[in-house]
C-alpha cells in the first residue's frame, strides 16, 4: 500500500493491519520523541495504537529540534 510520509511516497507492508506505532517501530523511532500529524490532524500519542493506516494516507512525523532566533 502507498502512503505519503514527510512529503515522500512510500510502499509499506500492511500485514495484519499497520498502526502508527507499528510504522514507527519499523523505522526504529522511539515514540515519545516525535509528533505525528495524520491526514492533516495532530494525533495524540494515546491514539497511535488505535489508528490503522490506509491507502493514500499522509503522515507528518516531526520532532522538536534546537531553534532560537
Amino acid at each position: 500500500m502507498k502512503i505519503t510520509v514527510n512529503g515522500k511516497e512510500e510502499d509499506v507492508e500492511v500485514g495484519l493491519g499497520l498502526t502508527i506505532v507499528d510504522y514507527l517501530e519499523s523505522k526504529d523511532l522511539e515514540p515519545g520523541r516525535v509528533v505525528i500529524e495524520h491526514n492533516g490532524q495532530v494525533v495524540k500519542q494515546e491514539e497511535w495504537e488505535q489508528i490503522e493506516l490506509a491507502e493514500d494516507d499522509t503522515l507528518e512525523i516531526l520532532n522538536f529540534v534546537g531553534g532560537g532566533e
Binding site: N6, G7, K27, L29, V34, V35, E60, I61, L62, N63, F64, V65, G66, G67, G68, E69
Partner: peptide, 9 residues
C-alpha cells in the same frame, strides 16, 4: 525556544 522539524530517518 525550540523549533519543530520533520524527522530525518
Amino acid at each position: 525556544t525550540m523549533a519543530l522539524r520533520r524527522v530525518n530517518f
